[in-house]
Design a protein around this nucleic acid. Structure first.
Length: 764
RNA sequence: GCGCGAUUAGCUCAGUGGUAGAGCGCUGCGUUCACAUCGCAGAGGUCGCAGGUUCAAUUCCUGCAUCGCGCACCA
């Protein structure tokens, strides 16, 4: 201890290496007899990820707890790992390919997946290395990846389990489709962005005096739209408002609210769908809001998930006019091949020409976009696998209601319950290539199209995953249907969250599963409360028959100083690694905790500076204390045996009012710090220790001690004892928050004071 | 639309039913003797607005305003 400036760079790497080598991150290798366990699950970083502020907060919180419990004599285990992050990772690799002018289809599935694995091997663990820089004491020997063989096996078994239970089923529905990623998305994977669009009011002519033949559904009409003159006859049309006129080609009904008196006389009648010249019925549905637009809605079951549900209720047919690439298909007639935006403008023009466009008004609405690539979502009908949610959601709800899982802060329970209450079945299949391929095998001889002939759907969809199938972990040797064919495995993979939902137990050895499962706590931001946490809870209940953890800690989101979302693409991101480089890991840990009170954080760089300064303060106060005990023999040198007693509180006696004050404050701070940590009020705990150490210990006691040490021998020795005792106790409290510097100082303590090899395993 | 949160010092934020706190910044003074990434002293706030409960409200309640977030099948 020579330098008066604390230099984190000089010690952090070395200390972390020592910790890792000690094996103490592994609870099985911790010293002493330990009965109680404390287990934390790391929020799985994506393999595409690079450490950002959110991770820093998640993991600092987890590390604080793990270190606290480890010092408390628990078998402390922090499970680390990475998520294969299906769409995100595939997207990254596709982007790389694109630079070479290639797409994934150019390579083909096998080769593409090879590329992704290569990418994963190269970059997938970077984030874990970054977490080490932050000082995270996770048990790296237990690192898992969601596509490890053992993990994958559990994922596939979970699929089979649900299937056998009858909770997994294939369904043909209008789902969220990303035309860029070429895959379905679950409701939670859709992000809405405000968009200034338009609301177009369109006239649909009423069909009158139809013949029986016409009623039977033939697409003929006596009223030619072009001849229709709306201004002369109000009774001849119904006006609907829409933001997406191009989807009108796929309309199969007009719906009004049953209580809407304006339309009572229209109910049961038919209108002639302009352009397509198809007759569609006017129906009633309670979902229609009479106050919106004209109160009459065009129903496009194939391209609107809400309309799909209306269609289900009324057994309306589906007419798909947009394909998987976001273009109008051949059912769109002359508009076939156009992109939706192009078709929209062209159709507006045609409606104008026909005199059927009443008006257009500016309208701000929320545009659905893909949460990974940002492309506009195109709802299209598709055959997908769904997991029934009713029972699982109910259990997840009960687990929190009965406090088997405690969500803190409490206010987040509301959004958790709200989601579970309104939940729809989970679309678990994805049409990407990177992920767990569905254990579903189709007979390649027998093809079964979509049986329901009322659907007007594209061939492409019909061919995907059609025909009889078996669900099995391994490919059946013999096809049970035709007996001869080579069965084909489904092309689909599972939703990434299906596998990460199994994180608390999937891929664990039998021994670990018995010993370290379920665990205690997960700490993450609210944005994955439903995406991940809720799904872990019901998955745990299903497969472990227990809640997978008891505490779900939701922390605030770190925003920019201006309150904007941190985002790499917007250039508003702040890289924690730069801070670690500049100020040290302890400083950034200090900063995130200092600022985190449960509210969102407007990131303030000065907090990191405060952290660095505090580190320097600790460093120099320690230098002072060490100098005192080194230079003042006898009785307190490293060689002395008498000094052992000064590790115990009961052997520390105050001689002076200053002694009394500092010892009392120390005792008080210890109690309160512990209380705050257990209540997950880390910021409070840190502030308390900070104030004690800096202002009570350094500013006051250290100064007074200088005088006391000048005094008579007995007072001198006692003061020295108090100094070292207070320092040691402070280091323990500080260790959770600022592990590196506290460890560095600890290792400089002479033997009797430094009892353990590492502060990491000192007794709190 | 419903729900949630915020509104406290120049900036970022803690906090509490009883004469307001931190970090950073600012002003003045102070360096042989742990630390200038320091110490001491100080300036700076009618704790968003309006009511109510209370002996007492920044804190509890109600309403309002502004900002932010989440949810929802308003086409």
């Amino acid at each position: 201890m020579i330098d008066s400036l604390y230099n984190p760079k000089a010690v952090e790497g070395k200390i972390y290496q020592q910790w890792e080598n000690s094996g103490f991150f592994n609870p099985d290798k911790l010293p002493g007899r330990r009965q109680k366990k404390f287990i934390v699950y790391m929020p799985l970083p994506n393999v595409t990820g690079s450490l950002h502020m959110g991770h820093s907060l998640d993991n600092t919180i987890s590390d604080i707890l793990i270190r606290y419990y480890r010092m408390k004599g628990y078998k402390a285990l922090w499970f680390p790992g990475t998520d294969h992050a299906g769409i995100a990772t595939q997207y990254v690799v596709e982007k790389e390919l694109k630079k070479k002018g290639l797409g994934r289809f150019d390579l083909g599935r096998e080769k593409f997946i090879e590329k992704v694995w290569k990418w994963k091997r190269e970059y997938g663990n970077i984030i874990l290395e970054q977490l080490k820089k932050l000082g995270c004491s996770a048990d790296w020997s237990r690192t898992r990846f969601t596509m490890d063989p053992a993990y994958s096996k559990d994922v596939i078994n979970a699929f089979i389990h649900y299937y056998k239970k009858g909770w997994l089923y294939q369904g043909f529905r209008t789902i969220n489709w990303c035309p860029r990623c070429q895959t379905s998305l679950s409701d939670l994977e859709v992000e809405y962005k405000e968009e200034k669009g338009k609301l177009w009011y369109i006239k649909y002519p009423l069909v009158k005096n139809l013949t029986l033949r016409q009623r039977s559904g033939l697409m003929v009409s006596r009223v030619e739209p072009s001849k229709f003159n709306p201004s002369t006859d109000e009774q001849n049309y119904i006006v609907v408002a829409t933001t997406r006129p191009e989807t009108m080609l796929g309309d199969t009904a007009i719906a009004v609210n049953p209580r809407d008196s304006r339309y009572t006389s229209f109910i049961g009648k038919k209108v002639l769908l302009p352009i397509q010249n198809r007759e569609i019925p006017i129906i009633v549905d309670k979902a229609i809001d009479p106050k919106f637009g004209t109160g009459a809605v065009k129903v496009t079951p194939a391209h609107d998930t809400a309309d799909f549900e209306i269609a289900q209720r009324h057994k309306l047919p589906l007419a798909q006019v947009i394909d998987e690439s976001g273009k109008m298909n051949d059912k769109a007639g002359k508009y076939a091949g156009l992109k939706v935006e192009e078709a929209r403008m062209a159709i507006i023009q045609e409606l104008k020409n026909l005199g059927l466009l009443v008006k257009e008004e500016p309208y701000e609405h929320r545009l659905a976009t893909c949460y990974r690539c940002g492309h506009t979502i195109e709802p299209i009908p598709s055959k997908q696998w769904f997991l029934k949610m009713d029972e699982l959601a109910k259990r997840a709800e009960v687990a929190v209601k009965t406090k088997k899982v405690e969500i803190t802060p409490k206010r987040f329970k509301k959004s958790y319950f709200n989601w579970l209450k309104n939940i729809r079945d989970w679309t678990v299949s994805r049409q990407i290539w990177w992920g767990h391929r569905l254990p579903v095998f189709y007979c390649s001889k027998r093809q079964e199209g979509i049986s329901n002939s009322q659907f007007l759907i594209s061939k492409q969809i019909q061919n995907s995953s059609a025909g009889p199938f078996v669900v099995s972990a391994k490919k059946p040797k013999k096809c049970p249907f035709c007996g001869t064919c080579e069965m084909k495995q489904s092309q689909d993979v599972l939703d990434t969250w299906f596998s990460s939902a199994l994180w608390p137990f999937a891929g664990l050895s039998q021994k670990d599963r018995k010993k370290y499962c379920p665990g205690n706590l997960v700490s993450n931001a609210r944005e994955i409360l439903n995406l991940w946490d809720a799904r872990m809870i019901f998955s745990g209940l299903e497969f472990l028959k227990k809640v997978p953890f008891q505490v779900l800690l939701i922390h605030g989101t770190i925003l920019t100083k201006e309150g904007k979302r941190m985002s790499k693409s917007l250039g508003t991101g702040i890289n924690p690694l730069e801070y670690i480089e500049k100020y040290g890991a302890d400083a950034i840990r200090f900063a995130v905790i200092w600022q985190s009170s449960g509210q969102d954080i407007h990131w303030d760089e000065t907090a990191v500076i405060a952290g660095r300064k505090f580190g320097n303060k600790i460093w120099n106060a320690s230098r002072f204390v060490l100098a005192q005990i080194r230079n003042r023999p006898p009785g307190l040198t490293a060689a002395s045996t008498k000094v052992k007693v000064s590790r115990k509180a009961k052997n520390i006696k105050p001689f002076t009012p200053a002694d009394k004050a500092v010892l009392r404050a120390l005792k008080d701070v210890k109690t309160k710090t512990e209380k705050y940590i257990l209540a997950f009020e880390f910021s409070q705990a840190l502030r308390l220790v900070y104030n004690f150490f800096w202002h009570t210990f350094c500013d006051k006691y250290l100064e007074i001690s200088k005088k006391q040490i000048q005094g008579e021998e007995k007072l001198k020795t006692n003061t020295q004892k108090i100094l070292i005792y207070t320092l040691l106790e402070s280091l323990k409290m500080l260790h959770s928050f600022m592990p590196f510097i506290s460890e560095a100082v600890y290792q400089n303590l002479p033997k009797p004071f430094r009892k353990e090899k590492f502060l990491l395993v000192e007794k709190w």
